[in-house]
Computed example of a mutant assay.
Amino acid sequence: MTSTNNESILPLQDMALPQIPDWFPLAWGWWASLAGIVLIFALLLFYLRWKKKRLAPKKTALHLIPKEKPAAALELVRQVALCYYPREHIAQLTGKDWYIFLDSQVSTPIFEQNYEQWQSVLYSKEAILNSEQLVQDCYQWVEQALPPKKRRA
Rank of each mutant, 00 (worst) to 15 (best):
N6P: 12
N6E: 05
S8D: 13
S8R: 11
S8W: 05
I9R: 15
L10F: 15
P11N: 13
L12M: 11
L12Y: 08
Q13D: 08
D14A: 15
M15D: 05
M15Y: 15
A16D: 07
L17Y: 12
I20E: 03
P21L: 06
P21Q: 09
D22P: 11
D22K: 03
D22C: 04
D22V: 03
D22A: 10
D22H: 03
W23D: 13
W23G: 10
F24C: 14
A27Y: 09
A27I: 12
W28K: 15
G29K: 13
W30T: 05
W31Q: 08
A32M: 04
A32V: 06
A32F: 02
S33G: 12
S33F: 13
S33T: 08
L34F: 11
L34A: 07
L34K: 02
A35H: 02
I37T: 02
I37C: 10
V38K: 07
L39N: 03
L39G: 01
I40C: 12
I40Q: 00
I40N: 00
F41Y: 13
F41T: 01
A42W: 13
L44D: 08
L44K: 09
L45A: 10
L45T: 07
F46L: 15
F46Y: 06
F46N: 06
F46A: 05
Y47C: 08
Y47S: 08
Y47Q: 01
L48W: 09
R49P: 02
W50G: 02
W50F: 14
W50R: 07
K51V: 12
K51L: 07
K52L: 08
K52T: 13
K52C: 04
R54K: 10
R54G: 03
L55P: 01
L55I: 14
L55C: 09
A56P: 08
A56N: 00
P57F: 04
P57A: 05
P57M: 04
K58L: 05
K59E: 09
K59Y: 05
T60P: 00
T60A: 13
H63W: 04
H63D: 15
H63V: 13
L64D: 10
L64S: 10
L64R: 13
I65Q: 01
I65D: 00
P66C: 06
K67M: 14
K67H: 15
K67V: 15
E68F: 07
K69Y: 15
P70Q: 12
A72I: 03
A72S: 15
A73Q: 11
L74N: 00
L74S: 06
E75Q: 09
E75K: 14
E75W: 12
V77I: 01
V77Q: 05
R78E: 04
R78M: 00
Q79E: 14
Q79F: 00
V80I: 08
A81T: 14
C83P: 05
Y84C: 07
Y84T: 01
P86H: 09
P86Q: 04
P86V: 06
